[in-house]
Nucleic acid binder design. Structure first.
Lengths: 225, 225
DNA sequence: ACCTGAACACCGTTCAAGT
DNA sequence: ACCTGAACACCGTTCAAGT
């Protein structure tokens, strides 16, 4: 209850990042302000800036933590196809749990644990039989797909407190569309509220992997073209 | 040269959106402030808010314009596969020319001309032979891939004035990576500076389409599973 | 109806001053 | 070295007042 007392334990970058993560998780991306951090950590602005470069740096560090933790437990056994699905899914789950990290990933992709993701996806694609020159494009495409979903996830999370409510709103919007101009969207409105994001994500990954396999199977025979 | 004179022509939502687009294109996303708009349009804050709901609304409208214009000239002849590539490429080009629109697309995907994109991609996939129940997932996956690239594009554009410089920086970063832990990234560093974004984007689209064709070809025979 | 511009409630960041 | 908190330079948005 020493709310007004000076903090006794030393501040550190680690403690700050942890506090930021908690604010982000419980109150959302907009709630993370330097002010909110000083209150929570019972300290001043300068103290924060002594351990952290700026807010952008702080956000990147928090996202890095969350993503790294998610990808850390990746198994190394099992076949490459399954490993790719596992990596993708663990990323999806992490981003669903921490939408702000997804937004950060999409915003500054070169920072954060994206390097590890790139490397691991590349390794598994190579194990799948993708030849070196195609590896770059294939891994990039898969990562971009994941980033797209990450951004999407962050967007819907930002849109409303309850995902179902905002999904219903979009569905209603689609339903109001002119069936003559938007026949498919108009029809898809019915599917929207009951669809499973996770399953749809995985379906996209499988589409990708099927493409990789198809192209590589073909590419092996007409390498000359 | 009537810089201080009161504006004679009437203000309108259209004029405001156009001015905003110009600021965004020439000076970047951060340069669009309400202040900057009042200066450019020689007016006050209230005047702007009389025609536009808020800044978010304004940004969405500007992105809508840019994206709609890009997708407008879509041909309806030629085979569906080619049409899909064309839609994707025109989007890519629009986002490359207006990175801020890409960021907006990734941020608020339900607004803007994304509906038209969804519909047109759905139509072409259907023409390609994708059955109705799979249409939702396939179109979603492709749109998500495009959004991922859009976000990426916006990110690199934001990163530095000259794309080549920031790409070189990333390449240098990859080169510094421990070759034992990041063997593939370390090697890919050489490919990074000379690779063509547009080609890589298209390669990803083709991977997707190959997957769609492969899955559908297979799916037609064992629909029961 | 349309517009003006001072005022408000916030931001992230800095920095002289304390311990 | 580590921390405090007032101050600065910005935001987006509002609103009483003008035409």
């Amino acid at each position: 209850m020493a709310t007004k007392a000076r903090r006794t334990d030393a501040l550190s970058r680690e403690v700050i990042v942890e506090a930021a993560t908690q604010i982000l998780d419980t109150d959302g991306e907009d709630a993370l302000t330097l002010r909110a951090l000083t209150v929570r950590l019972n300290t001043g602005y300068g103290a924060l800036y002594h351990h952290v470069e700026n807010k952008s740096d702080l956000l990147a560090a928090a996202a890095e933590d969350v993503i790294a933790r998610a990808v850390a437990g990746a198994a190394t056994d099992s076949e490459p196809r399954e490993l790719l699905r596992t990596v993708a899914l663990s990323l999806f789950d992490a981003i669903t749990a921490h939408p702000w990290a997804g937004a950060q990933l999409a915003r500054e992709p070169w920072r954060s644990a994206l390097l590890d993701i790139y490397e691991s996806i590349g390794a598994h694609l190579e194990a799948l039989g993708v030849p070196e020159p195609a590896l770059f494009d294939s891994a990039g495409a898969l990562v971009n797909y994941i980033l797209g979903v990450a951004g999407q996830n962050a967007a819907t999370a930002r849109a409303g407190a309850h995902r179902t409510a905002s999904l219903a709103a979009v569905a209603a919007q689609w339903e109001r569309l002119d069936p003559a101009r938007y026949p498919r969207l108009h029809k898809a409105a019915a599917q929207l509220p009951e669809h499973d994001d996770r399953e749809q994500f995985l379906a996209g990954v499988d589409l990708f992997l099927a493409g990789v396999e198809a192209v590589h199977r073909r590419g092996a025979s007409d390498r000359s073209s």
